[in-house]
Amino acid sequence: MNSIRLAFSVYGQYIRVAFASAAAYRLDFFFTQTVMLAGSLLIPLLTVLIYANGEAIPGWTFHEALLAQAVFMLSSGLCAPFFHNVVWTTMERVREGTYDLLLLKPGSAVFTAVAGSFGFEYIGQLCGGAAMFAYAAARFAPIPAGGAALFALLFLMGVLLNLGCVLMMSAVCFKWVGNSRVFEIYDAVTLFGRYPVTIFTGALRAAVTYVIPVAMLGFFPATAILGRTTAQMAVAAVPCVLFAIFGYGLFRHMIQRYQSAGG
């Protein structure tokens, strides 16, 4: 219990430090965040245009399609400040040979890596996601308690998937030093999670549901709000948990390898 309290207070301090760092260049910070917020609103732009031109994604009303994308935005917006910088800081520390400093901190190295990488520079994206979600979900209020609970559960699965991916990419950074493009792979993969999975057919649909269940980042939790969940979503939760476990294990393994190889 005590160690959990300690972990929270450490995490809190890391967030404080991240905020102080971001606030050091206030003007640029606010400006960048505003742009980022606006930029995050681009995600549903294509959907808006499709419906504005009188067309539709088959089986989905405009607001349903928008909700799926809003959930995606909320999910990625939430994961960005908490997880994304793990990749960048790992890359930077490995390249500069300062990963040692992280290992000098007591406690779990994975925890220190994640807590120490809180990124305030993604706050705009989180705000954009939250705003869009509030707007899209309001259409379907009141959401029944069961639906909301199911939504929360599926949403959490998406977060686990995201965490797993980030830890895996960070692990890759120990080997593939200096590749600043690793996040583009992540973006390309999650791109398949931005739209209702019904647009995909055959193997591709199975892949985004069960192999790398990116559908969990937006579409599946959204269906919980719409009351249209199916059994396959429960199955898709399994790989999400596996991703998180595997990502954690791989990242830990790479830290240990770093310790034995000496960078």
Binding site: S9, V10, G12, Q13, Y14, R16, V17, A24, K105
Partner: peptide, 13 residues
């Protein structure tokens, strides 16, 4: 940021 903030971080850690 000032060293003071980094010290406080270590206080928590």
């Amino acid at each position: 940021i000032p060293p003071m903030d980094a010290f406080r971080l270590n206080k928590a850690i």
